[in-house]
């Protein structure tokens, strides 16, 4: 098996008395795509936020290539450069145009030259079909376009791992596709990713491994076909049923 990029050991996250994540352990290997599914409020997003140290954790350990990730780490900004995160609500910087949104961190944080960063940004933008939007401001873009820019912004930092937090949840249905296609493309290129999503078809297509999270614990994990066709636990079956629709015929 290839090198471990991320190791999570016995992670515990509590908000006051409420335990949101209870003893989560997970290894992510180079090039692996992990999809996390589960009912709302099960802690999926919190898990991603812990991996990026946006949340303090109450127990366990998270390591990125052997280096501890914690809100208390002194070199937290350096570690975070290696963890790309894309949020549900895009969170582009409204006062900067698309190109500056993407090149801000590479130039100011990684101290790369403006020309080199801009060149890479434009190349990435054209890969997601947005090269002509480089000079536009976020308010001039559709939701799907904004989310693709947000993905490019994360990519341009050359992260070791990418985290996607329900990136299509705020989008109109016809824009979901364009964003998911970009993520599928990244999976094909062998990027290491953790994806939280409610798009089950997409999850099945993109995942190397599916994690089913419920009430703060990993209830089931494994091969996507196995999980979606033959879920082992009753909770997972119940959860997957909420995505299928059947018309009940009264005159049967």
């Amino acid at each position: 098996m290839s090198e471990k990029v991320l190791e999570i050991e016995h992670l515990v996250k509590r908000f006051d008395d409420l335990t949101v994540l209870n003893d989560i352990s997970l290894d992510v290997h180079e090039g692996e795509v992990i999809v996390v599914v589960g009912p709302s409020g099960c802690g999926k997003s919190t898990l991603l936020r812990c991996i990026n140290a946006l949340e303090e954790i109450q127990g366990g350990e998270i390591r990125l290539k052997g280096e501890a990730v914690s809100k208390k780490s002194r070199n937290l900004p350096e570690i975070r450069q290696k963890i790309g995160m894309v949020f549900q609500s895009y969170e582009l910087f409204p006062h900067l145009n698309v190109l500056d949104n993407i090149t801000l961190a590479p130039t100011k944080v990684q101290k790369r030259s403006r020309e080199e960063a801009a060149e890479e940004a434009l190349a990435l933008l054209s890969r997601v079909g947005l090269q002509e939007k480089a000079g536009s401001f976020p308010r001039q873009l559709s939701g799907g376009q904004k989310q693709r820019v947000a993905i490019v912004r994360a990519l341009c930092m050359h992260p070791e791992i990418l985290l996607f937090d329900e990136v299509t949840a705020a989008l109109d249905p016809e824009m979901v596709r364009e964003v998911l296609d970009v993520i599928l493309g990244l999976a094909e290129q062998g990027k290491t990713m953790i994806i939280v999503t409610h798009e089950m078809q997409f999850a099945r297509a993109v995942a190397d491994k599916v994690i089913f999270l419920d009430e703060g614990v990993i209830k089931e994990e494994g091969d996507p076909d196995q999980f979606f066709d033959h879920p082992k636990t009753e909770r997972a079956k119940e959860f997957l049923r909420t995505f299928t629709f059947e018309r009940k015929h009264s005159h049967s």
Binding site: N52, L54, P77, E78, R80, Q81, I83, G84, M85, F87, S89, E91, L92, F93, L104, A105, K108, V109, Q110, R153, A154, M157
Partner: peptide, 12 residues
């Protein structure tokens, strides 16, 4: 979220 997305990009 503006603070968080800046932090996630590694800004101090």
């Amino acid at each position: 979220h503006q603070y968080e997305s800046a932090a996630a990009l590694g800004l101090t």
